[in-house]
Design a protein around this nucleic acid. Structure first.
Lengths: 263, 263
DNA sequence: GAGTGGTCTAGACCACTGT
DNA sequence: CAGTGGTCTAGACCACTCC
């Protein structure tokens, strides 16, 4: 004997997949569903919460339950690293023209709102292991948010770590007011003689924490985030930057091309 | 005035983050929490469902609510494409030794249980666009499941599409009983004279469908899946394979290294 | 069998949306 | 204001786990 809320969720799921109601359309009101399924309101609501957690339905207080319309994907590319490296030594005027984010998204500089904040942290065991430094070593933590001007929420949350004593050689690098730096991270590192040789990216996914949901505007529920962990290694084999990027799973697509050698 | 279930969830979340109770430990019973927070059982349960959806708590019927222990990550690599290509033309004995999955995970062939099933599909508008063929063109759909022998559930769900008339030149390629094919997909394509030149991978994330949760053993809730869409393009510029891979977001890490040219 | 979480009800009252 | 979803209760009964 199946549970009532599961049967209800199953039925509605099937109907939605069949296109009735279609994307963006409203479901019958909860009281209507009570009549139709002959179960109490809390049970109907339980079924709808299940569908919301799946990302199939979006609840809107006072308006109704709606079939979620799949979001337009923003293409994010990962071939940007070579592109960024090529720019790092270019003259200032050229670096000013376009940033890496614009390169990824195809938008122009004016469409984006950017913010940066710097902090000093002591290395946790995990970060110490990543950088190969003693626990407690002073790190520079940089928090970035980037937003489309027209939208209310940023499309990513970036936290970048650098070894403080490595970068403080150039005081401009520990000053958040110099952001956005023309040419990006690799250009910043170039000012202290660092050449990035290799970038390693690792991707996982999970539900957002409440804080992330808040910052990214995912209050609706039923949306996952991708966690991109990026390690930059210089020509001497040192880890020179470690970044964590939180991305909304439905609005973002990570793109990784691989070219193979010809036979 | 904040909602009761949110306050309760907040309080418990803070305590769990502070390590009390710690990973794997049991929370107080729901009736105990009713006493502590002075709210009714359904309200306490609502709060716990919220924490379960976040992946912070795992509900176990008849046992209790437990703090979820972060899973050990399985490393999956994406540099396998070149590796696989290099093997595709090697003699049979060598191809038999190790498969790509073993290369990715570092496990030996005996540890894995593999299954494959083939179907014939008509191209949907989306698939027709991917392959650049008319809608309704006959496709070969291949479903793969791979599982650790010691575990109950597969660690990925793979659906691969090929253009039927392109591959049926070699009847062995439309016969599921020939799987697992020594040397993998690229070796299969090599038998009909196809050389893969480029692989494009796109990653997104979302909550699992009930069917995916079922197949991957994610019934606990609060786990996201990654969707990896892989397009293989041959030296003539044709799309020769399109695959969708569903991976549990907490147990899987996608690894993408990038080497940069030296200055 | 004792203890635990899971499901469900009938109904009250609150909060938001749109007219 | 009417209509909609959101929260909450007090309590009944079921299902699973472990001793």
């Amino acid at each position: 004997m199946a549970k009532a809320y599961e049967k209800i969720a199953d039925t509605l799921r099937q109907e939605i997949r069949a296109g009735e109601p279609g994307p963006g359309e409203r479901l019958p009101s909860e009281t209507k569903l009570v009549e139709r399924f002959k179960f109490s309101l809390p049970t109907i609501q339980h079924a709808l919460r299940v569908l919301a957690a799946e990302g199939l339905v979006e609840k809107q207080h006072g308006r109704g339950n709606f079939v979620r319309r799949p979001r337009r994907l923003v293409l994010r590319t990962s071939e940007r690293h070579q592109w960024e490296k090529d720019r790092a030594r270019k003259p200032l005027e050229e670096r000013l023209e376009t940033g890496a984010t614009e390169h990824d998204t195809g938008l122009s500089v004016g469409d984006l709102v950017f913010s940066a904040a710097y902090f000093e942290d002591a290395a946790t065991p995990h970060l110490a292991a990543v950088f190969g430094v003693p626990e407690g070593t002073k790190l520079l933590r940089r928090e970035y948010r980037t937003r489309y001007q027209a939208e209310d929420f940023p499309f990513n949350l970036v936290t970048s770590y650098l070894v403080y004593d490595m970068v403080s050689v150039n005081p401009e690098l520990t000053d958040a007011s110099r952001e956005p730096w023309p040419g990006g991270s690799q250009s910043q590192l170039h000012t202290i003689g660092i050449e990035v040789d290799r970038v390693e990216e690792r991707v996982t996914a999970r539900p957002p924490t409440p804080e992330e949901a808040e910052e990214l505007g995912l209050s609706a529920g039923g949306i996952a985030v991708m966690v991109l962990r990026k390690t930059s290694i210089d020509t001497a084999g040192r880890v020179v930057d470690y970044s964590e990027v939180i991305l909304p799973g439905d609005r973002t697509e990570l793109y990784f091309p691989t070219s193979l050698t010809r036979w």
